[in-house]
Amino acid sequence: MSRDLRTALAELEDDVRLVRLAPAAEIRGRGRGRLLRRRAAVAGGFAVLLVAAIATAGTLLPGERETLPASPGCAAPVDLTLPDSSAGVAVRVLSGAADASRAEQAIKDIRVRIPDARADTTAREELPSGTVAVIRYGPRAVGEAAFLDAMLLGQAEVIFVPSRADARLDLVVGPAYQQLATPTELNRALVEITPQDLPHEC
Rank of each mutant, 00 (worst) to 15 (best):
P175T: 09
A25V: 12
A100W: 06
A40I: 06
R111S: 09
G31I: 09
E126W: 10
A25R: 14
D84N: 15
P139F: 03
D14F: 12
R38M: 14
A70S: 12
R188C: 10
E26L: 08
D4A: 15
T59G: 14
R136F: 01
A103Q: 05
G63T: 08
P128E: 10
R65H: 07
V93A: 08
G143T: 00
A57M: 12
Q155E: 14
V89C: 01
L82A: 07
V132F: 04
R124P: 04
P72C: 05
L186Y: 08
A90M: 12
A52Y: 09
D14Q: 15
C202N: 02
R32L: 13
A119S: 15
T7K: 14
C202D: 00
T184V: 15
D4V: 11
L21Y: 11
A141K: 06
P195R: 00
T122H: 13
P199M: 08
T131C: 05
A189N: 06
P62M: 12
S71I: 08
P77C: 03
L18Q: 13
V112C: 06
L82T: 03
A53Q: 10
L153D: 10
T81Q: 03
L12C: 09
V78Y: 00
Y177F: 10
V142K: 00
L180R: 01
A117K: 00
S2P: 01
Q105P: 09
D15S: 14
V42I: 15
D84S: 14
A75Y: 02
D170C: 07
R28V: 09
D170A: 13
P199L: 08
L148P: 02
R6W: 12
R28E: 14
G130T: 10
A97M: 12
M1G: 13
S86H: 07
K108P: 07
P83G: 06
Y137T: 02
S95I: 04
E125H: 11
V78G: 05
D109R: 01
T122A: 15
I110G: 03
I193H: 00
T56V: 14
L186T: 01
P195T: 06
A75D: 06
A53G: 14
V91P: 01
E144L: 03
L60Q: 04
R164W: 06
S129Q: 13
A123R: 15
P72D: 06
V78H: 01
R65F: 00
L171D: 00
T81V: 05
L35I: 09
V132L: 05
L36P: 02
V112R: 12
T7Y: 12
L49I: 09
I27S: 05
R111F: 00
L12K: 11
H200R: 04
Q178S: 15
R164D: 08
E11H: 14
I110T: 04
L94R: 11
V19M: 13
G29N: 06
A165Y: 11
L21S: 15
P83R: 09
R168C: 04
V51S: 14
L148G: 00
G174H: 03
R38S: 13
G44T: 10
A123H: 10
L82G: 04
E126F: 10
